[in-house]
Simulated scan of single mutants.
Amino acid sequence: MTTLKPGDKAPDFSIPNQDGNTVSLSDFKGKKLVLFFYPKASTPGCTAEACSLRDNVERFRESGYEILGASADSPKRQTNFKNKYELPYDLLADEDHTLLNAYKVWGPKKFMGKEYDGIHRTTFVIDKEGVIQEVITKVKTKEHADQIL
């Protein structure tokens, strides 16, 4: 689980998006950012979460927010996820876990009695100055937009 908390400077990053273009935290200077980490593209919970944000994208934009999703999926898998569900924001492909480790969302998990390393579903709300305003670790996938706004 992440040790980052509100008031911390958001770790900088430069990670490829679904198209292979580099996206950096500095691209969002002067804008508010919702950065959500999800375990795997096109799985039921991740799809519900991504679509909750998609369905409320106008509310986010009216409040001055940009949205970025991130997982360890390949750019191709991110492209398929983005296109299939018509997601109006970039998905970061962090295959080498640089971003996941910087935000401390990669680590031991348990599921059905098995332990493994994976992504802890976590959302960071970052202000215009790059400071974390909120960390959501108990994500309700179907109502995630309402948890943020």
Rank of each mutant, 00 (worst) to 15 (best):
V131T: 13
C51V: 13
A10K: 04
F124A: 05
F28E: 10
T141W: 01
K142C: 02
N83Y: 00
F37W: 06
H144E: 05
D55W: 01
A48F: 07
T22D: 09
S24H: 06
E134Q: 14
R54E: 00
H144A: 04
S74Q: 12
A93C: 08
D19K: 01
V23F: 04
T3Y: 07
I126S: 09
Y103D: 05
D90Q: 14
Q18E: 14
I15H: 06
C51Y: 00
F36C: 05
A10H: 03
K128G: 10
P11C: 09
K32M: 03
L100S: 13
A102V: 06
Y103S: 03
S52F: 00
M1Q: 13
V131Q: 05
L25W: 07
V34H: 02
F111H: 15
F60M: 08
D19E: 14
N21E: 15
T43Y: 11
G118T: 14
D12C: 05
Q147Y: 00
T122N: 06
V135G: 03
S52A: 02
L100F: 07
C51P: 00
N21M: 09
K5Q: 14
D117T: 08
L92R: 07
S14W: 06
V139P: 02
I132D: 07
I136H: 04
R77N: 15
T123Q: 02
T2I: 07
L99W: 12
F36R: 05
E129C: 05
P108N: 15
E86D: 12
L53E: 01
F111E: 14
K29M: 03
Q18K: 03
F81I: 09
Y38E: 02
N83T: 11
G45Y: 10
P88C: 03
L91Y: 01
I67A: 12
S24V: 06
A41D: 15
G45K: 11
K138P: 10
E66T: 14
V105P: 04
G69P: 04
V131E: 04
D90W: 11
L25T: 08
D96Q: 12
V23K: 06
F13C: 04
E86H: 05
I119K: 14
L92H: 06
V34E: 04
R54S: 00
P108C: 14
K142P: 03
C51F: 01
G30H: 02
Q18S: 07
P108H: 13
F81P: 08
K104L: 08
T43P: 12
F124N: 06
S52P: 00
K140T: 06
P11Q: 09
A41G: 15
L99R: 11
E95C: 09
L35D: 12
H120Q: 12
A41C: 13
S74Y: 12
P16R: 05
E129V: 03
E115G: 10
C46F: 05
R61A: 15
Q133Y: 01
L35A: 09
D146T: 02
L100V: 03
K109E: 11
Y85L: 03
I67C: 11
H120I: 11
K76I: 14
Y85I: 00
S24N: 11
K5E: 10
V23Q: 09
H97Q: 13
R54D: 00
T137H: 04
D55V: 01
V105H: 06
E58K: 15
L100H: 12
S74K: 13
G107M: 05
L33N: 07
S42G: 08
K110N: 15
P75K: 11
L25H: 08
S63W: 05
K32V: 04
A102Y: 08
C46Q: 08
H120N: 13
M112W: 13
P16V: 12
E66V: 14
V23W: 04
